[in-house]
Deep mutational scan, measured.
Amino acid sequence: LVRYRTISKIPQITLNFVDLKGDPFLASPTSDREIIAPKIKERTHNVTEKVTQVLSLGADVLPEYKLQAPRIHRWTILHYSPFKAVWDWLILLLVIYTAVFTPYSAAFLLKETEEGPPATECGYACQPLAVVDLIVDIMFIVDILINFRTTYVNANEEVVSHPGRIAVHYFKGWFLIDMVAAIPFDLLIFGSGSEELIGLLKTARLLRLVRVARKLDRYSEYGAAVLFLLMCTFALIAHWLACIWYAIGNMEQPHMDSRIGWLHNLGDQIGKPYNSSGLGGPSIKDKYVTALYFTFSSLTSVGFGNVSPNTNSEKIFSICVMLIGSLMYASIFGNVSAIIQRLYSGTARYHTQMLRVREFIRFHQIPNPLRQRLEEYFQHAWSYTNGIDMNAVLKGFPECLQADICLHLNRSLLQHCKPFRGATKGCLRALAMKFKTTHAPPGDTLVHAGDLLTALYFISRGSIEILRGDVVVAILGKNDIFGEPLNLYARPGKSNGDVRALTYCDLHKIHR
């Protein structure tokens, strides 16, 4: 019993810090008490220290592992850092350059016999395009090294910054494609005289377009951006097909006994025919423009016929181009109408809503002055909100995010209106959640004399007048207030005048 009563005193000691020596009952000389009392004092002292730490809000209350900052290894790049964003855009520009100039170089340097010394005699450094290609190869190699040090988000939505895990993730992902696209074939085969082989191998750079397509997928929600990307894709495919079309004609031209190829026909049409040795002929500019003209006309199913396939190889390629053109029509131009419709969806919704308003007016036989006010209010409210119901949009977000959005939407009023000066951010967040926005066209009466005042109004834009009878008592403008002081009276009061809008007004109100 003594032991039980001794232990039962522990909660009292913990909360009230009572010393055991003052209790005459606990001072009985028993061996059990002498053993338990020192333990009680020690526990009391420890609990006292913990309570003191909690009340003082000291940093040592938290466990040590929670006080440590997340460790980022040296030379690790955050995937959302500004440097990584700028670097990704730079790589994107280099990939676009590669997609345009690599097929052009591979096709127009394929057994090209233009006048001038061969590239091997001039030297590697004197070729501007080769120098640019070398810079692109170096940048792609540097990009691989950067990807080995860039964080990523795993399946659990955690940012991984450990170098080993980053390397394994990159090896399992895009490393092989990036490595093949970054191989400097110019340096590996330079001086061997195989410019045709170098041009063909350099087309491996186009593998990076797969990554670019995935990154550009984030802009699919913007109709104008999608339309622009589709047109660029169409032009890029036409450019690639033009390079292939020229390569076919250029390879067949020296081996044909009869002059029936499209390059021969082009030379005869523009007065620059090929001679018996295969030299001469149109310039590279004429060849490229004509090839691009043929691919565009074939892809769009126009086909004027002034550039036509004559050999079997050219006919087979033309059939493939027609098939590609039909697929592009289905996948690209078939979506253009939907994209344009999405661009004008706001206008369509406006006309639909206006039609419903006019049908309501016609069905209920609203008189002319009231009908005009109804239409003007709808037009003004639509121009202010673009038909978007803010309350319906915010309803799907958590309250903390709703408060931040409301604070942002009402920031101008909260910053410049005098009653809100000096208020804490928590108070402003709470008030912003209570605001209701209303609009009024010129001549609209917001409050009639004798109406119950259940709200306090803040003028965000425009001006109003307060009338008693036919006498203008006051004219209020931006950041002015009218209405009933909230919670100042037990019952809502009545208006002693009319409140009429002089201009288009936007008002925020808080109800009782």
Rank of each mutant, 00 (worst) to 15 (best):
66 K>S: 13
72 I>M: 14
72 I>E: 15
75 W>P: 01
77 I>F: 07
84 K>I: 04
93 L>E: 01
103 P>H: 01
105 S>C: 03
106 A>E: 01
109 L>A: 06
112 E>P: 14
116 G>K: 09
121 E>K: 15
127 Q>R: 05
129 L>T: 06
138 I>Y: 04
141 I>K: 01
141 I>R: 01
142 V>E: 01
145 L>F: 10
154 N>T: 11
156 N>T: 13
158 E>M: 09
160 V>Q: 06
161 S>T: 12
161 S>D: 14
167 A>D: 01
175 F>H: 01
178 D>G: 01
180 V>D: 01
183 I>Y: 03
183 I>G: 05
184 P>S: 01
190 F>L: 11
192 S>Q: 11
195 E>T: 15
198 I>Q: 03
205 R>S: 01
206 L>F: 01
207 L>S: 13
210 V>E: 08
213 A>F: 11
216 L>F: 09
223 G>Q: 06
225 A>Y: 06
230 L>Q: 14
232 C>E: 01
232 C>D: 01
235 A>S: 14
236 L>H: 01
246 Y>M: 11
250 N>R: 14
252 E>L: 01
256 M>G: 14
258 S>Y: 03
260 I>Q: 04
260 I>D: 03
261 G>K: 01
269 Q>K: 01
277 S>A: 06
278 G>A: 03
283 S>G: 01
287 K>D: 01
289 V>R: 01
295 T>W: 01
295 T>N: 01
297 S>I: 01
299 L>R: 01
301 S>F: 06
302 V>R: 03
308 S>F: 01
312 N>T: 01
321 V>G: 01
326 S>K: 04
329 Y>N: 15
330 A>S: 01
334 G>W: 03
334 G>V: 04
337 S>T: 11
346 G>A: 11
355 L>A: 13
365 Q>I: 01
366 I>D: 01
373 R>T: 10
376 E>T: 14
377 Y>R: 05
382 W>E: 01
383 S>V: 04
386 N>E: 04
388 I>P: 04
393 V>K: 03
398 P>M: 01
403 A>N: 04
403 A>S: 06
408 H>W: 04
415 Q>G: 11
415 Q>T: 08
421 R>G: 09
425 K>T: 15
427 C>W: 01
